[in-house]
Design a binder for these strands. Structure first.
Lengths: 174, 174
DNA sequence: TGCAATGTAAAACGATCGTTTTACATTATG
DNA sequence: CATAATGTAAAACGATCGTTTTACATTGCA
Protein backbone atom coordinates (compact mmCIF):
# COMPACT_ATOMS: atom_id res chain seq x y z
CA UNK A 1 0.00 0.00 0.00
CA UNK A 2 1.54 3.23 -1.10
CA UNK A 3 1.85 6.35 1.02
CA UNK A 4 -0.97 8.27 -0.63
CA UNK A 5 -3.48 5.46 -0.11
CA UNK A 6 -2.43 5.10 3.49
CA UNK A 7 -2.77 8.81 4.14
CA UNK A 8 -6.15 8.85 2.44
CA UNK A 9 -7.37 5.93 4.54
CA UNK A 10 -6.22 7.53 7.79
CA UNK A 11 -7.77 10.84 6.80
CA UNK A 12 -11.08 9.20 5.92
CA UNK A 13 -11.23 7.62 9.34
CA UNK A 14 -10.49 10.84 11.23
CA UNK A 15 -12.66 13.09 9.07
CA UNK A 16 -15.55 10.67 9.39
CA UNK A 17 -15.21 10.14 13.13
CA UNK A 18 -14.44 13.65 14.34
CA UNK A 19 -15.45 15.97 11.55
CA UNK A 20 -13.30 18.23 9.39
CA UNK A 21 -13.37 21.13 11.82
CA UNK A 22 -11.82 19.06 14.60
CA UNK A 23 -9.33 17.19 12.42
CA UNK A 24 -6.24 19.32 11.91
CA UNK A 25 -3.30 18.36 9.76
CA UNK A 26 -1.19 17.73 12.84
CA UNK A 27 -3.66 15.10 14.03
CA UNK A 28 -3.39 13.48 10.65
CA UNK A 29 0.39 13.37 10.65
CA UNK A 30 0.34 11.96 14.17
CA UNK A 31 -2.24 9.30 13.34
CA UNK A 32 -0.49 8.34 10.11
CA UNK A 33 2.96 8.45 11.70
CA UNK A 34 4.43 10.66 9.02
CA UNK A 35 5.97 14.11 8.96
CA UNK A 36 4.01 17.08 7.73
CA UNK A 37 6.43 17.41 4.85
CA UNK A 38 5.60 13.92 3.61
CA UNK A 39 1.91 14.57 4.08
CA UNK A 40 1.97 17.66 1.91
CA UNK A 41 4.23 16.08 -0.67
CA UNK A 42 1.61 13.40 -1.26
CA UNK A 43 -1.73 15.07 -0.81
CA UNK A 44 -1.04 18.70 -1.70
CA UNK A 45 -3.47 20.37 0.67
CA UNK A 46 -6.27 19.68 3.08
CA UNK A 47 -8.89 20.45 0.44
CA UNK A 48 -7.25 18.07 -2.03
CA UNK A 49 -7.14 15.45 0.70
CA UNK A 50 -10.83 15.88 1.44
CA UNK A 51 -11.68 15.43 -2.23
CA UNK A 52 -9.40 12.41 -2.48
CA UNK A 53 -11.07 10.86 0.55
CA UNK A 54 -14.45 11.21 -1.11
CA UNK A 55 -13.26 9.73 -4.39
CA UNK A 56 -11.77 6.75 -2.59
CA UNK A 57 -14.83 6.28 -0.42
CA UNK A 58 -17.06 6.35 -3.49
CA UNK A 59 -14.99 3.57 -5.02
CA UNK A 60 -15.25 1.45 -1.89
CA UNK A 61 -18.91 2.11 -1.28
CA UNK A 62 -20.06 1.56 -4.83
CA UNK A 63 -18.13 -1.71 -4.94
CA UNK A 64 -20.07 -2.82 -1.87
CA UNK A 65 -23.46 -2.23 -3.45
CA UNK A 66 -22.80 -4.09 -6.67
CA UNK A 67 -25.89 -6.19 -6.15
CA UNK A 68 -28.76 -7.58 -8.18
CA UNK A 69 -31.80 -6.96 -6.04
CA UNK A 70 -33.26 -4.29 -3.80
CA UNK A 71 -33.13 -6.65 -0.86
CA UNK A 72 -29.44 -7.29 -1.45
CA UNK A 73 -28.94 -3.54 -1.66
CA UNK A 74 -30.20 -3.03 1.87
CA UNK A 75 -28.35 -6.11 3.05
CA UNK A 76 -25.18 -4.50 1.71
CA UNK A 77 -26.03 -1.29 3.56
CA UNK A 78 -26.49 -3.30 6.74
CA UNK A 79 -23.03 -4.75 6.27
CA UNK A 80 -21.61 -1.33 5.61
CA UNK A 81 -22.97 0.26 8.77
CA UNK A 82 -21.92 -2.75 10.80
CA UNK A 83 -18.35 -2.48 9.54
CA UNK A 84 -18.00 1.28 9.10
CA UNK A 85 -20.41 2.55 11.71
CA UNK A 86 -23.18 5.05 11.11
CA UNK A 87 -22.34 8.71 11.20
CA UNK A 88 -24.43 9.83 8.26
CA UNK A 89 -23.42 10.26 4.64
CA UNK A 90 -19.88 11.62 4.53
CA UNK A 91 -20.47 13.08 1.08
CA UNK A 92 -23.38 15.25 2.17
CA UNK A 93 -21.59 16.13 5.38
CA UNK A 94 -18.52 17.28 3.49
CA UNK A 95 -20.54 19.32 1.06
CA UNK A 96 -22.48 20.94 3.90
CA UNK A 97 -19.38 21.69 5.93
CA UNK A 98 -17.74 23.45 3.01
CA UNK A 99 -20.96 25.25 2.14
CA UNK A 100 -20.70 23.81 -1.38
CA UNK A 101 -18.11 26.46 -2.11
CA UNK A 102 -15.28 24.05 -2.95
CA UNK A 103 -15.65 22.93 -6.56
CA UNK A 104 -13.56 19.75 -6.29
CA UNK A 105 -15.64 18.59 -3.33
CA UNK A 106 -18.97 19.62 -4.80
CA UNK A 107 -18.14 17.63 -7.91
CA UNK A 108 -17.00 14.53 -6.01
CA UNK A 109 -20.29 14.57 -4.10
CA UNK A 110 -22.27 15.13 -7.26
CA UNK A 111 -20.58 12.22 -9.02
CA UNK A 112 -21.19 9.90 -6.11
CA UNK A 113 -24.86 10.73 -5.76
CA UNK A 114 -25.38 10.39 -9.48
CA UNK A 115 -23.79 6.95 -9.40
CA UNK A 116 -25.89 5.96 -6.40
CA UNK A 117 -29.11 6.95 -8.13
CA UNK A 118 -28.10 5.07 -11.26
CA UNK A 119 -27.31 1.95 -9.27
CA UNK A 120 -30.64 2.06 -7.49
CA UNK A 121 -32.51 2.51 -10.76
CA UNK A 122 -30.71 -0.52 -12.17
CA UNK A 123 -31.41 -2.66 -9.13
CA UNK A 124 -35.07 -1.73 -9.13
CA UNK A 125 -35.26 -2.56 -12.84
CA UNK A 126 -33.65 -5.97 -12.23
CA UNK A 127 -36.09 -6.75 -9.47
CA UNK A 128 -39.12 -5.55 -11.34
CA UNK A 129 -38.26 -6.63 -14.86
CA UNK A 130 -38.84 -3.08 -16.04
CA UNK A 131 -37.78 0.46 -15.24
CA UNK A 132 -39.75 2.30 -12.58
CA UNK A 133 -38.29 5.72 -11.86
CA UNK A 134 -40.93 6.59 -9.27
CA UNK A 135 -40.23 3.44 -7.29
CA UNK A 136 -36.50 3.98 -7.65
CA UNK A 137 -36.90 7.41 -6.10
CA UNK A 138 -38.78 5.89 -3.17
CA UNK A 139 -36.04 3.32 -2.69
CA UNK A 140 -33.49 6.10 -2.82
CA UNK A 141 -35.36 7.89 -0.06
CA UNK A 142 -35.37 4.71 2.03
CA UNK A 143 -31.66 4.23 1.40
CA UNK A 144 -30.78 7.78 2.37
CA UNK A 145 -33.17 7.63 5.31
CA UNK A 146 -31.67 4.41 6.63
CA UNK A 147 -28.21 5.93 6.41
CA UNK A 148 -29.19 8.95 8.47
CA UNK A 149 -31.72 7.53 10.89
CA UNK A 150 -29.14 4.87 11.77
CA UNK A 151 -27.05 7.64 13.30
CA UNK A 152 -29.39 7.78 16.29
CA UNK A 153 -31.50 4.64 15.84
CA UNK A 154 -28.69 2.22 15.13
CA UNK A 155 -28.35 -0.50 12.54
CA UNK A 156 -31.86 -1.81 13.21
CA UNK A 157 -33.20 1.06 11.15
CA UNK A 158 -31.65 -0.40 8.03
CA UNK A 159 -33.79 -3.48 8.58
CA UNK A 160 -36.86 -1.28 8.81
CA UNK A 161 -35.92 0.35 5.52
CA UNK A 162 -35.35 -3.05 4.00
CA UNK A 163 -38.81 -4.21 5.05
CA UNK A 164 -40.40 -1.03 3.74
CA UNK A 165 -38.65 -1.46 0.40
CA UNK A 166 -39.94 -5.01 0.21
CA UNK A 167 -43.50 -3.79 0.71
CA UNK A 168 -43.19 -1.08 -1.92
CA UNK A 169 -41.65 -3.49 -4.38
CA UNK A 170 -44.29 -6.13 -3.79
CA UNK A 171 -46.96 -3.60 -4.57
CA UNK A 172 -45.32 -2.52 -7.81
CA UNK A 173 -44.84 -6.02 -9.09
CA UNK A 174 -47.05 -7.29 -11.97
CA UNK B 1 -37.47 40.93 19.07
CA UNK B 2 -34.66 40.98 21.57
CA UNK B 3 -30.99 40.92 20.74
CA UNK B 4 -30.40 37.28 21.65
CA UNK B 5 -33.21 36.05 19.39
CA UNK B 6 -31.96 38.19 16.55
CA UNK B 7 -28.41 36.91 16.93
CA UNK B 8 -29.65 33.33 17.10
CA UNK B 9 -31.72 33.78 13.94
CA UNK B 10 -28.81 35.30 12.02
CA UNK B 11 -26.49 32.57 13.24
CA UNK B 12 -28.91 29.83 12.22
CA UNK B 13 -29.06 31.21 8.71
CA UNK B 14 -25.28 31.44 8.30
CA UNK B 15 -24.47 28.15 9.99
CA UNK B 16 -27.07 26.38 7.88
CA UNK B 17 -26.06 27.97 4.60
CA UNK B 18 -22.27 27.95 4.86
CA UNK B 19 -21.43 25.48 7.59
CA UNK B 20 -19.80 26.07 10.96
CA UNK B 21 -16.27 25.84 9.63
CA UNK B 22 -16.78 28.71 7.22
CA UNK B 23 -18.85 30.88 9.55
CA UNK B 24 -16.56 32.87 11.82
CA UNK B 25 -17.72 35.16 14.58
CA UNK B 26 -16.71 38.19 12.54
CA UNK B 27 -19.09 37.14 9.77
CA UNK B 28 -21.80 36.87 12.36
CA UNK B 29 -21.20 40.32 13.80
CA UNK B 30 -21.13 41.76 10.31
CA UNK B 31 -24.34 40.01 9.26
CA UNK B 32 -26.12 40.93 12.49
CA UNK B 33 -24.77 44.47 12.50
CA UNK B 34 -23.52 44.30 16.06
CA UNK B 35 -20.15 44.60 17.72
CA UNK B 36 -18.29 41.53 18.87
CA UNK B 37 -18.65 42.73 22.44
CA UNK B 38 -22.43 42.70 22.19
CA UNK B 39 -22.35 39.32 20.50
CA UNK B 40 -20.38 37.75 23.32
CA UNK B 41 -22.38 39.50 26.00
CA UNK B 42 -25.52 37.81 24.71
CA UNK B 43 -24.46 34.42 23.48
CA UNK B 44 -21.40 33.64 25.56
CA UNK B 45 -19.42 31.65 23.05
CA UNK B 46 -19.63 30.05 19.63
CA UNK B 47 -20.44 26.68 21.14
CA UNK B 48 -23.23 28.14 23.25
CA UNK B 49 -24.54 29.88 20.14
CA UNK B 50 -24.54 26.64 18.19
CA UNK B 51 -26.52 24.92 20.93
CA UNK B 52 -28.93 27.84 21.15
CA UNK B 53 -29.49 27.72 17.40
CA UNK B 54 -30.41 24.06 17.65
CA UNK B 55 -32.80 24.63 20.54
CA UNK B 56 -34.53 27.42 18.67
CA UNK B 57 -34.68 25.43 15.44
CA UNK B 58 -36.21 22.50 17.29
CA UNK B 59 -38.93 24.78 18.60
CA UNK B 60 -39.70 26.12 15.14
CA UNK B 61 -39.52 22.79 13.40
CA UNK B 62 -41.60 20.86 15.90
CA UNK B 63 -44.26 23.57 15.78
CA UNK B 64 -44.43 23.07 12.02
CA UNK B 65 -45.11 19.37 12.27
CA UNK B 66 -47.91 19.58 14.79
CA UNK B 67 -50.19 17.59 12.54
CA UNK B 68 -52.72 14.81 12.82
CA UNK B 69 -51.89 12.48 9.93
CA UNK B 70 -48.88 11.01 8.21
CA UNK B 71 -49.87 12.71 4.99
CA UNK B 72 -50.00 16.07 6.74
CA UNK B 73 -46.60 15.31 8.22
CA UNK B 74 -45.01 15.07 4.78
CA UNK B 75 -47.01 18.01 3.56
CA UNK B 76 -45.49 19.99 6.43
CA UNK B 77 -42.04 18.80 5.43
CA UNK B 78 -42.73 19.92 1.87
CA UNK B 79 -43.61 23.37 3.19
CA UNK B 80 -40.49 23.43 5.33
CA UNK B 81 -38.09 22.64 2.50
CA UNK B 82 -39.84 25.13 0.25
CA UNK B 83 -39.43 27.90 2.81
CA UNK B 84 -36.14 26.93 4.44
CA UNK B 85 -34.42 25.13 1.59
CA UNK B 86 -32.87 21.68 1.78
CA UNK B 87 -29.38 21.36 3.10
CA UNK B 88 -29.87 18.25 5.20
CA UNK B 89 -30.70 17.97 8.86
CA UNK B 90 -28.87 20.73 10.73
CA UNK B 91 -28.98 18.71 13.94
CA UNK B 92 -27.13 15.74 12.51
CA UNK B 93 -24.77 18.03 10.65
CA UNK B 94 -23.89 19.90 13.82
CA UNK B 95 -23.36 16.73 15.78
CA UNK B 96 -21.16 15.31 13.03
CA UNK B 97 -19.13 18.47 12.67
CA UNK B 98 -18.36 18.56 16.37
CA UNK B 99 -17.65 14.83 16.41
CA UNK B 100 -20.27 14.46 19.15
CA UNK B 101 -17.67 15.76 21.57
CA UNK B 102 -19.65 18.82 22.69
CA UNK B 103 -22.12 17.75 25.40
CA UNK B 104 -24.50 20.71 25.01
CA UNK B 105 -24.81 20.06 21.30
CA UNK B 106 -25.05 16.30 21.59
CA UNK B 107 -27.89 16.76 24.05
CA UNK B 108 -29.75 19.29 21.92
CA UNK B 109 -29.59 16.88 18.99
CA UNK B 110 -30.66 13.99 21.17
CA UNK B 111 -33.66 15.89 22.50
CA UNK B 112 -34.75 16.91 19.02
CA UNK B 113 -34.53 13.44 17.55
CA UNK B 114 -36.36 11.98 20.52
CA UNK B 115 -39.15 14.50 20.04
CA UNK B 116 -39.28 13.78 16.32
CA UNK B 117 -39.62 10.05 16.89
CA UNK B 118 -42.34 10.62 19.47
CA UNK B 119 -44.27 12.87 17.12
CA UNK B 120 -44.09 10.35 14.32
CA UNK B 121 -45.26 7.56 16.59
CA UNK B 122 -48.22 9.70 17.61
CA UNK B 123 -49.13 10.62 14.06
CA UNK B 124 -48.95 7.00 12.92
CA UNK B 125 -51.15 6.00 15.85
CA UNK B 126 -53.72 8.67 14.94
CA UNK B 127 -53.81 7.51 11.35
CA UNK B 128 -53.97 3.84 12.19
CA UNK B 129 -56.16 3.91 15.27
CA UNK B 130 -53.48 1.98 17.13
CA UNK B 131 -49.79 2.09 17.87
CA UNK B 132 -47.45 0.52 15.34
CA UNK B 133 -43.81 1.02 16.27
CA UNK B 134 -42.50 -0.88 13.25
CA UNK B 135 -44.48 1.30 10.86
CA UNK B 136 -43.45 4.41 12.78
CA UNK B 137 -39.82 3.46 12.26
CA UNK B 138 -40.42 3.08 8.53
CA UNK B 139 -42.09 6.48 8.41
CA UNK B 140 -39.14 7.91 10.32
CA UNK B 141 -36.79 6.48 7.70
CA UNK B 142 -38.88 8.06 4.94
CA UNK B 143 -38.88 11.38 6.76
CA UNK B 144 -35.14 11.38 7.30
CA UNK B 145 -34.59 10.13 3.79
CA UNK B 146 -36.71 12.85 2.24
CA UNK B 147 -34.80 15.46 4.21
CA UNK B 148 -31.45 14.27 2.92
CA UNK B 149 -32.28 13.11 -0.59
CA UNK B 150 -33.87 16.51 -1.14
CA UNK B 151 -30.39 18.03 -0.87
CA UNK B 152 -29.55 16.73 -4.34
CA UNK B 153 -32.95 15.65 -5.69
CA UNK B 154 -34.90 18.72 -4.72
CA UNK B 155 -38.30 19.09 -3.10
CA UNK B 156 -39.87 16.51 -5.43
CA UNK B 157 -38.30 13.82 -3.29
CA UNK B 158 -40.54 14.75 -0.39
CA UNK B 159 -43.50 13.92 -2.60
CA UNK B 160 -41.98 10.52 -3.34
CA UNK B 161 -41.59 9.90 0.39
CA UNK B 162 -45.15 11.03 0.94
CA UNK B 163 -46.42 8.55 -1.64
CA UNK B 164 -44.33 5.74 -0.17
CA UNK B 165 -45.68 6.49 3.30
CA UNK B 166 -49.21 6.34 1.93
CA UNK B 167 -48.56 2.89 0.47
CA UNK B 168 -47.05 1.57 3.70
CA UNK B 169 -49.90 2.97 5.75
CA UNK B 170 -52.54 1.55 3.43
CA UNK B 171 -51.03 -1.86 3.83
CA UNK B 172 -50.98 -1.66 7.61
CA UNK B 173 -54.58 -0.55 7.90
CA UNK B 174 -57.18 -3.02 9.22
C1' DT C 1 -28.76 66.21 36.46
C1' DG C 2 -26.31 62.15 37.06
C1' DC C 3 -25.57 57.41 36.91
C1' DA C 4 -26.19 52.78 35.29
C1' DA C 5 -27.00 50.12 31.41
C1' DT C 6 -26.22 49.07 26.78
C1' DG C 7 -24.46 49.79 22.66
C1' DT C 8 -20.31 50.64 18.92
C1' DA C 9 -15.55 50.82 17.00
C1' DA C 10 -11.31 48.93 16.92
C1' DA C 11 -7.16 47.20 18.65
C1' DA C 12 -5.08 43.38 20.70
C1' DC C 13 -4.89 38.76 22.87
C1' DG C 14 -2.97 34.04 22.70
C1' DA C 15 -4.02 29.90 20.39
C1' DT C 16 -4.35 27.32 16.55
C1' DC C 17 -4.73 26.74 11.74
C1' DG C 18 -2.75 25.10 7.16
C1' DT C 19 1.57 25.30 5.10
C1' DT C 20 6.63 25.89 4.21
C1' DT C 21 11.29 25.63 5.39
C1' DT C 22 15.69 24.13 7.34
C1' DA C 23 18.61 20.51 8.62
C1' DC C 24 19.56 15.87 8.75
C1' DA C 25 18.97 10.51 8.30
C1' DT C 26 18.01 6.54 5.56
C1' DT C 27 17.70 3.84 1.56
C1' DA C 28 17.80 2.21 -3.37
C1' DT C 29 20.22 2.19 -7.47
C1' DG C 30 23.68 3.42 -11.17
C1' DC D 1 31.00 4.73 -3.69
C1' DA D 2 28.15 8.46 -5.13
C1' DT D 3 23.94 10.39 -5.89
C1' DA D 4 19.19 11.01 -6.09
C1' DA D 5 15.03 10.01 -3.82
C1' DT D 6 12.37 9.74 0.17
C1' DG D 7 11.75 9.97 4.63
C1' DT D 8 11.82 12.39 9.73
C1' DA D 9 12.13 16.09 13.31
C1' DA D 10 11.19 20.50 14.42
C1' DA D 11 11.06 25.29 13.96
C1' DA D 12 8.83 28.95 11.80
C1' DC D 13 5.57 31.24 8.59
C1' DG D 14 1.60 34.39 8.08
C1' DA D 15 -3.24 34.10 8.44
C1' DT D 16 -7.16 33.46 10.88
C1' DC D 17 -9.63 31.88 14.73
C1' DG D 18 -12.52 32.78 19.03
C1' DT D 19 -12.32 35.95 22.60
C1' DT D 20 -11.18 40.04 25.55
C1' DT D 21 -10.09 44.65 26.32
C1' DT D 22 -9.88 49.67 25.93
C1' DA D 23 -12.11 53.83 24.90
C1' DC D 24 -16.08 56.21 23.86
C1' DA D 25 -21.20 57.24 22.54
C1' DT D 26 -26.04 56.84 23.47
C1' DT D 27 -29.98 56.15 26.12
C1' DG D 28 -33.50 55.37 29.94
C1' DC D 29 -34.53 56.15 34.46
C1' DA D 30 -34.04 57.75 39.71
Amino acid sequence: MDMTSKLTAVAERLFDRHGYMATGMDRLTEAAGVSSRTLYKHVGSKTELMARVLTERDRRFMARIEVRSVDALFAALEDWVRVEGCRGCLFLRTRAETGGDTPEIAEAVSLHKEALQQRIREVVAMDLGREDLALAEQVLVLFEGATHAAVYRGAQTVSAARAAAFTLLERARP
